[in-house]
């Protein structure tokens, strides 16, 4: 398992990295997907720019009433962040469900999100959180919503030369209940399906609901039909079930050795109901 020859640069600054990327280099973060692909020679970049040495990309902080997570924050750093645990528990719960401890030590949120594996865990949570992604190029900076970022399997709104530098998520106070529920693919640790739910209840009615779905189709999405159905209703088991039943509606479901399209759709519904139920139970 030997990769093809490649150049490797570990820049100290983001500007230096963006300059290299503008000339066609490929960014390397945790390497959890890129390195195996290179070893199998399915990917053969000529030049890798290692983002992990750039201090400016590694942070988790609160600013302006939002939470900012640098691209190279590892899954473990997110999982164990006291700030996130208190103010965005959905993200810590999701990070803890990724792969295994070795993967969580190496893998980064930026790498995972930019790679856009259709079975990755974060995208479900980030859709439910209506996260924003800061994309930087050598001469540009823009912010893209989760809804616009995930385009297709392994395809995002990132333009050549751009990197994802930062993920921005809202602060969820104690009145918001969240949950990530996942069916694990036993070999890879990826999600066969992963369902993220955020809910609020006001005066006995569901006042706010966001549902993110990963694993089911070519990219993570928000199940807006299910959300609309649930909003304004009571959180009865029947209403949960009725909303969950819609999460896979109209979706061209993935099918592979580990789960057929029908089974995936069914699992999405089951895990949506579980995520909603658990999220509701967590409202303080």
């Amino acid at each position: 398992m030997i990769a093809q020859k490649f150049e490797y640069t570990a820049p100290k600054s983001l500007d230096e990295a963006l300059h290299l990327l503008a000339s066609g280099a490929k960014p390397l973060a945790g390497g959890m997907s890129l390195i195996p692909m290179m070893k199998l020679r399915l990917a053969s970049p000529e030049h890798l720019v290692d983002l992990r040495t750039i201090q400016d990309l590694n942070f988790i902080r609160e600013a302006g009433g939002q939470l900012h997570i640098g691209a190279t924050a590892s899954h473990y750093e997110i999982e164990s962040s006291a700030l996130l645990r208190q103010k965005c528990p959905l993200l810590t719960e999701t990070a803890a469900a990724i792969g295994d401890v070795q993967v969580r030590n190496m893998g980064t949120i930026g790498g995972s999100v930019a790679h856009a594996d259709p079975a990755a865990d974060y995208p479900a949570a980030l859709q439910a959180l209506e996260a924003k992604f800061v994309l930087k190029g050598a001469k540009s900076e823009r912010t893209v919503s989760a809804a616009d970022f995930f385009v297709d399997a392994f395809a995002t709104a990132l333009e050549p030369g751009e990197i994802l530098s930062e993920v921005i998520v809202p602060i969820d106070d104690a009145r918001t209940g969240t949950s990530y529920q996942k069916m694990v693919q036993p070999a890879s640790g990826f999600a066969i399906v992963g369902l993220a739910a955020r809910v609020r209840v006001n005066a006995g009615k569901v006042s706010f609901v966001r549902i993110g779905v990963t694993g089911l189709s070519n990219h993570a999405y928000r199940a807006s039909g299910a959300e609309k159905t649930f909003e304004g209703k009571t959180s009865s088991p029947a209403n949960i079930q009725a909303a969950a039943a819609l999460v896979a509606q109209g979706v061209d479901a993935n099918s592979d050795l580990h789960a057929s399209a029908d089974f995936r759709r069914h699992l999405a519904v089951v895990h949506a109901a579980r995520a909603l139920k658990t999220a509701l139970s967590r409202i303080a």
Binding site: P36, L40, D100, Q185, P186, A187, S188, F190, L257, H258
Partner: peptide
């Protein structure tokens, strides 16, 4: 699992589910 063409479909540890400690 081999497919009909004799390709090993579960030819990587991401598809061949080996028992894990956990």
């Amino acid at each position: 699992v081999y497919d009909d063409n004799g390709q090993l479909v579960t030819g990587e540890l991401t598809d061949y589910a080996l028992p894990r400690a956990h």
